[in-house]
Design a protein around this nucleic acid. Structure first.
Length: 270
DNA sequence: ACCCAGGCATTGG
DNA sequence: CCAATGCATGGG
């Protein structure tokens, strides 16, 4: 039985909203009510099911990555317990968005390149450009595509990325990151601040990109992308004119999950 | 034809 | 340390 158990409550459609909100993501593709992604070289489809998610085709090799994709590392029960004593806004977000388990980016290189494409431009533009990158340098499975590998983009020419709509700068960032000697897998063993230092030492990766890497790839509980425009607007809409960096202290140690609840809340609630 | 959008490096004070 | 500037695309 290819059933992946996730702690209750779990709201599949709400949790995967991000993969539909800004147009299709060819590497995390919403198709006929299910989420398609290439895992371990093969396309897998995830569908909601009682007690968790049905994953097909399933084998033990892919389980860890699919669990990561679906946000299993987040301690949602701990968050909900904490939220009972939190402010009314958090309590309302939790009651309206119950079961929202933020998805994660299973691959560090893909996560960073996705962030580079989203720097400064609208997410609609970012997804369009990223999808062209995927079609040019990735591989198609059945429906979804595998994201271009670091090795493939290390061999890419900057001009090839320009023709996909990258700015000259961003083309340099992507190819430079791919060719850099930074060990992306090793970052998982480091504390938050050290991860940020190593990432921001790479040209094209700033504080915003590093914060989202901590939040969406490493699932660090205290990650809080204070510079993110979407988060700033969400905080303003729920809390008014407050200091975005300072307000995060009241969410400790659940800043990451709160950031996601604020962002999704700003999109699906009033 | 504008203007803004989930940044960043670079340049100059 | 902080302010100003250019960047390329998609949507309004």
């Amino acid at each position: 039985m290819p059933l992946l158990f996730l702690p209750e409550p779990y709201a599949f459609d709400l949790s995967t909203e991000r993969f539909r909100a800004f147009g299709p993501d060819l590497a995390n593709l919403w198709h006929e009510g299910g989420l398609h992604r290439v895992v371990g070289g093969r396309e897998v489809r995830s569908d909601p099911a009682p007690g968790g998610v049905v994953v097909e085709p399933f084998d033990a090799e892919i389980e860890a990555e699919v669990r990561t994709l679906l946000g299993a590392p987040f301690d949602l029960n701990g968050f909900y317990t904490w939220a009972r004593g939190a402010d009314p806004i958090v309590r309302r977000l939790v009651s309206k968005l119950e079961g929202l388990r933020p998805p994660l980016a299973p691959d560090p290189f893909e996560s960073l390149v996705a962030s580079i494409t989203a720097q400064q431009v609208s997410l609609f533009a970012a997804f369009a450009i990223r999808n062209r990158l995927i079609e040019r340098f990735g591989k198609r499975a059945e429906h979804a595509w595998s994201f271009p590998t670091r090795a493939r983009l290390a061999r890419a020419k900057e001009d090839e990325l320009l023709s996909l709509g990258f700015s000259r700068r961003k083309a340099e960032y992507v190819v430079g990151l791919a060719r850099s000697d930074l060990d992306l897998e090793a970052l998982a063993a480091l504390p938050d601040e050290e991860v940020k230092e190593r990432l921001t030492a790479v040209r094209g990766l700033g504080a915003w990109t590093a914060d989202w890497f901590l939040a969406r790839h490493l699932a660090r509980p205290r990650a809080w992308p204070a510079g993110d425009l979407g988060l700033r607007k969400a905080v303003a809409s729920f809390y008014g004119d407050v200091d975005v960096r300072a307000v995060s202290e009241r969410f400790d140690p659940f800043q990451n999950v709160v950031a996601h609840y604020l962002l999704v809340g700003a999109r699906v609630l009033g």
